[in-house]
Every structure is written in structure tokens, then in C-alpha cells.
Design a protein around this nucleic acid. Sequence first.
DNA 1: AATTAAAGACTACGCCTGTAATCTATAATT
DNA 2: AATTATAGATTACAGGCGTAGTCTTTAATT
Lengths: 124, 124
Amino acid sequence: MIELSKAEFDVLDALWINYPATASQIIERLSDDKQWHEKTIKTLLGRLVKKGALSFEKEGRQYIYMPCIERADYTLKESQNFIERFFSGRIAPLVSGFAKSEQLSQQDINELKKVIDDWEKNQN
Amino acid sequence: MIELSKAEFDVLDALWINYPATASQIIERLSDDKQWHEKTIKTLLGRLVKKGALSFEKEGRQYIYMPCIERADYTLKESQNFIERFFSGRIAPLVSGFAKSEQLSQQDINELKKVIDDWEKNQN
DNA sequence: AATTAAAGACTACGCCTGTAATCTATAATT
DNA sequence: AATTATAGATTACAGGCGTAGTCTTTAATT
């Protein structure tokens, strides 16, 4: 699996918003949330390319970037990894931890019920 | 929040199994899963102490270690962090990702239902 | 045509991490 | 008492990471 650092993920996340995109577009998108220097983001783009998370095509003097991996795939793998490390691979204890510390809202509960419902419908 | 590396967490996790404990007991516990040199584990113990995750008392020539933080607290904070980063703070999309990729077992579903049940009982 | 500006490439640098090896002090053994 | 073994302290070192700065090339502007 491709391993990304936090900062690298944030850059990729800005690309996932909408792609393909140029470096300047990505820099623009990130400027709201992060105080990163343009050079920093370019470094991170380079590292992402090197890791195989991004590809690009030349367009004049610029590069047009594209993700090589999908967000859902990446986050699923990270989630599995996380749950394995901290909860021996079982998901309920994570949710239970949230419940115990009052971190669950009624909306969360409704959404979870829906996930369960959908799952059950799929198990005919 | 105390930030632990993966290796540091694994050492602390071995202590959480049962504490207080000596370095050699921790080394013993870790020997099943990890191919770590004794020196490596001692280094990690030292770093954990420095980070405030462990404390110890001298007992003759040895140290008796104790966690300064609880596993449930640590994993809850890590979970919040994780879910914030990858799912904008909402827990259902994580579970939903598992469901979509067929990562949920009937047991998981049952456990989740129980968590929801308990939560609802608590909302009198 | 000459100059400038901007894109990407390359270099930098200190801190964290994984992974120990060596040093030092002291308890245990001979 | 002298020697040895062992616990912890200190040192090491390469690679990843956050965070840019400088160099080089080429497109744009004067």
C-alpha cells in the first residue's frame, strides 16, 4: 500500500476535490486551511508523484495532476489499518468508545442505523 | 495530547496488558509478536517516559513501569483524530466504507446494534 | 532580442523514528 | 574483595517529514 504522510494526504485531498488540476489550483484550494508556502506544496506534489499517488501530464510549462488512487480506497485501507492496530480489527469497540464518551449525536445514530439497514438488505 | 509513534504505542500496549511491570516483563510480552532487540525496547521505554506516557519507580536495580494514560482515553483521542482527518468527523462514513467493501460480519453488525441500543437506553 | 517572471528540479536542514551499540554503574557471584 | 553480568543512560545513524530556499529552464513581456 502507498504510505502517505499527513501533509501529503492533505495535498492529495485537495486534488480529489476536483481533478485534473494544476499546481496553482491545488495551492489555491489549500490556501484557505493551511499556511503553507507554495514551495512546500510543490515539494509535496513531487513526493506524491514519486510515491505513485499522483501522475501528471505536461501542458506547456505546467503539469496537470491526476490522482492515481481513489479516496475511498485509500481511506478504507487506512481505516482497516487503524482498527487493526487499536481495536484488534473489530469496528464496534471504536463506535462504542465514542458512545461511552458522549461523542455520538442522534444524527450519527441515524446514519449508523441506515448503514446497518442497508447491510441487512444486501444479505438476502 | 501525547503523541506516540507506532513502535512506542506497541510498547505501551504491552504494558497495558498488565501493570506495573518491569522492562524484562515487557520485553518478554513483546517477544511473541515483534522481532525487537531488547535495546530497542528499552530505548522506546525511555522515550515513552520522556513523553510522559509512562512513569516508573526504582526497585533495586530495576525500574517498575506504570502507564500514565489509559488505553481507552488514548484510543478515543486517536479515533477522533482519525475520523476528523479522513471523514470530516463523522463516524458513519467509516462504517459505511467497511460495509461497502464487504468488511462487516454478522457479528460486527450485532455488536453495532448493541452499541446503538445502549446509546438509546441512555437517552431516556 | 533582451529581460523578467514563473514553473518545476534540486538542495537543505532539523526533528522524529526505528533500530540498535556502547558506556557506566551497581547488584550478584566467585 | 574481585570479577562479572545486567539494568539503565547515552550515543549513533539512516531515512522520512515538515518546511522551505536556490537553481534552471522556458514562457511571457518589454
